[in-house]
Write a protein that binds this DNA or RNA. Structure first.
Length: 721
RNA sequence: GGGCGAUUAGCUCAGUUGGCUAGAGCGUCCGCCUUACAAGCGGAAGGUCGUUGGUUCGAGCCCAACAUCGCCCACCA
């Protein structure tokens, strides 16, 4: 008797959670438990970009789950040894920022806590969130192997990251140096160039008399200690002065002695062509200072206040000091003119949008050029391929112009940098076993490095870490993995770094394919954000429409690498589709129950052959990563070919007195239903499994559609065109 | 300053190597509770595929220029 379930419309929430539990209990997410056809199959591995363990999943997570799950499920049904490895990310700076906001709400501050306290609290916070996040992944249908799940602060991760750090030192690719870093005065940490954004601002631009010169600046508050003036060697305006010539310059807090430098760094086109330098608070100025071995002095402290060198302005915040300084300059007769609407872009912290104040800091840097070169080679040779050609060019451009990577962060939440620092000469030494107790250079006293790693330094090693390089079975079986599927906005942060560090440690890039998806925006194409109130919570949507409907809405028409506008109406449309499939199944199963199975007649065999061709086409689309086409075709075929035509036209036979004819037709419909359910399963796993469970055991090849055999002989093999 | 993407029905988007009488969802209009499905069925309206020029037997698709919107990178004393 066809289940009573079928008398009602399809109710996703009634079925999804129990179906997922059934899958998970079966153990088949773990390829080690799969049957022979998979065990002997080729490996197919996707490493999941570990979601941050600091909040709930957003629509972007739902998109990656959908895409990666489609690939994994297809591969599994195809007989591959299919493995999708989940993880959770401690997400260093990101999480600390989230937690600091929480502290602020509670009226607390991290600056009132010890590092250890803060670390412990955030640890507990992430462990809670991690569970929450994992269950959300389950809700989205992720067929990943939970037995292999790894947290990015797990012991094995830290060990590997330390090994890489040590190896970099041994290979001469690591140095600790005084460098200009992007300092965020709010978060009290240095940031990488990638974590700095630029904002267009209109500010005042001041022309100030500096001895015989006039200099232009938007930041007069940094100029207290400027003792060097730079012009271009070919700038005719200054040809009467010589390189190295000195001047008595009446300045803000008294007369100083200034020296002229003629250097190509001076740009004759800009302002007056003359500039003074502030090495402590400008990267370019610092480079000039280093070139000529000039002294440098700190003017602004880490909180953005002026230091005693500013005299009467000491202790003031920049915003407060600037107008006062300008006023004084004017009174001294040094202010030449003010350009009122000077348009320029200022660097800001990507989290708090506070203006970045460059500071000189001793930090750990990786020499990235040699690593980048190997990554470039791997991409150019096609060892790593990109699904979207344009991102290949973007990645190459970035790698070709790469700068050394500052991996030090002054935050508590992260992997501690295992090193000792000399209190006397500031030299730093990598120290994995806590063995170094005096400076290897000067014999001075050493202390433990307090900084932590940039979180991307450890996540850049994720694939070989999680698969247990070098001796783990997983590493031997699955590395290099098949596809790295993630959002394009972390191409530089993560993907290129994984290629670099993967090759560096293992000799091979960590994946064969890079599939970058776009951002999920709201129906109007606006970025989703809490403040706009346009965030689509994937779990709420799943509750309302069913996970399968959400998945279809995320994949149909979503070309790789392009942003997707997600309209709730679209999700509703696929809920209707789910119900349509449900009703198709009810009809077919009722017919087969009534008429029994028979021989499919010769004419109908042709219909089956047509469907077979269609199945091949879907397989090829998936091979080419054209999931947006495959899903749309499935929708169209099932609804408008199968239901509207084949099924409708079969009704006369099914109602005929000729029992043989009726059972033959019912059998055809059953066969076709099974093939379609299988093809649809990677896209709409819950619905298809729910229906599959209603098909009598003797009419199907496997108990779970999840591990049933794929209805096409074409082998899944990723290639484009 | 350098680079990239988009522009197709009222809205949001597909259209894979040029063959298209240009599709889907939502929306609109007309008619249907026809025993799988009203979350449905049958039917209809709606597009000079951003503009201009070129290549071709044939262009939404290829080339060139322009326009508008968006994104990325670099840098700004």
């Amino acid at each position: 008797m066809v289940s009573e379930k079928f008398t009602k419309p399809y109710n996703p929430t009634e079925n999804e959670q129990s179906i997922y539990k059934m899958w998970e209990d079966s153990g088949f997410f773990n390829p080690d438990n799969l049957k022979e056809k998979n065990k002997d199959g080729d490996p197919y591995c996707i490493i999941m970009p570990p979601p941050n363990a600091n909040g709930s999943l957003h629509a972007g997570h739902a998109l990656f789950v959908t895409l990666q799950d489609i690939l994994t499920r297809t591969a599994r049904m195809q007989g591959f040894k299919a493995l999708w490895v989940p993880g959770a990310d401690h997400a260093g700076f990101e999480t600390q920022v989230v937690y600091e906001k929480k502290l602020t709400k509670e009226g607390r501050s991290r600056f009132q806590m010890s590092r250890e306290e803060l670390y412990r609290e955030i640890w507990d916070f992430t462990q809670e969130n991690k569970k929450y996040m994992e269950n959300q992944l389950r809700r989205l249908g992720a067929s990943c192997d939970w037995s292999r799940e790894t947290f990015t602060l797990d012991e094995k991760v830290i060990k590997q990251v330390y090994k890489t750090f040590k190896k970099l030192e041994e290979d001469g690719l690591l140095y600790r140096g005084l460098r200009s870093v992007n300092w965020c005065p709010k978060h009290q940490t240095g940031l990488s160039n990638l974590e700095v954004e630029y904002e267009e601002r209109v500010e005042k631009f001041y022309y100030i008399k500096y001895g015989p010169f006039v200099i232009g600046t938007a930041r007069p508050e940094t100029k207290f200690a400027d003792k060097y003036i730079v012009v271009h060697p070919d700038d005719k305006r200054y040809s009467k002065y010589k390189h190295g010539q000195t001047f008595e310059v009446p300045w803000i807090n008294g007369t100083i002695k200034a020296t002229l430098l003629k250097d190509e760094a001076g740009d004759p086109e800009l302002g007056t062509g003359a500039m003074t330098i502030t090495p402590w608070h400008s990267e370019i100025d610092f480079e000039i200072a280093q070139k000529y071995n000039l002294p440098y002095e700190q003017i602004i402290d880490e909180r953005g206040r002026l230091l005693p060198i500013a005299g009467e302005f000491a202790g003031m915040k920049i915003e407060e000091a600037r107008p006062k300084i300008v006023k004084k300059l004017d009174q001294l007769g040094l202010l030449v003119k003010v350009d009122e609407d000077y348009k320029h872009s200022v660097p800001v912290c990507y989290k708090c949008k506070r203006e970045i104040e460059p500071q000189l800091k001793r930090q750990w840097f990786i020499k990235t050029k040699p690593l980048a070169q190997k990554a470039i080679d791997a991409i150019v040779s096609g060892e790593v391929k990109f699904v979207t050609e344009r991102y290949k060019r973007v990645a190459l451009h970035w790698l070709e112009n790469i700068k050394d990577w500052n991996i030090s962060r002054q935050i508590a939440w992260g992997i501690p940098i295992p090193a000792k620092i000399c209190k006397n000469c500031n030299a730093g030494f990598v120290d994995l076993e806590d063995k170094i107790n005096k400076c290897e250079k000067c014999g001075g006293e050493v202390e433990k490095e307090k900084d932590t790693f940039d979180t991307w330094f450890s996540s850049g090693q994720w694939p070989f870490v999680i698969l247990d390089y070098p001796d783990g079975d997983d590493f031997k079986t699955y590395y290099p993995t098949e596809v790295m599927e993630t959002a394009y906005d972390i191409l530089f942060f993560w993907v290129t770094r994984m290629i670099m560090l993967g090759i560096y440690r293992t000799g091979k890039p960590p994946f064969k394919w890079v599939y970058l998806h776009g951002l999920v925006r709201d129906a109007k194409g606006q970025k989703m954000s809490k403040s706009k109130g346009n965030v689509i919570n994937p779990i709420e949507v799943s509750d309302q429409f069913g996970t399968d409907a959400l998945r279809m809405a995320l994949v149909v028409g979503n070309t790789p690498g392009t942003d997707l506008n997600l309209d709730v109406n679209k999700i509703g449309a696929y809920r209707k589709f789910a119900n349509k499939v449900w009703n198709i199944a009810r009809f077919v199963l009722t017919q087969i129950e009534q008429h029994g199975q028979g021989e499919i007649n010769a004419n109908d065999q042709k219909t089956l052959v047509e469907l077979q061709k269609f199945a091949d086409e879907i397989t090829e689309d998936i091979s080419k990563f054209n999931l947006h086409l495959a899903s749309e075709k499935l929708y169209h075929y099932i609804w408008h070919t199968f239901a509207d035509k084949i099924l409708e036209e079969s009704k006369s036979d099914l109602q005929s007195d000729n029992k043989e004819l009726a059972s033959s037709k019912a059998t055809l419909l059953l066969e076709m239903l099974k093939i379609q359910l299988k093809l649809l399963h990677p896209f709409m796993p819950f619905l298809t499994e729910t229906i599959w469970q209603e098909i009598p055991d003797d009419m199907k090849d496997e108990k779970f559609i999840m591990i049933s055999s794929w209805p096409s002989n074409i082998k899944l093999k990723h290639e484009l065109a």
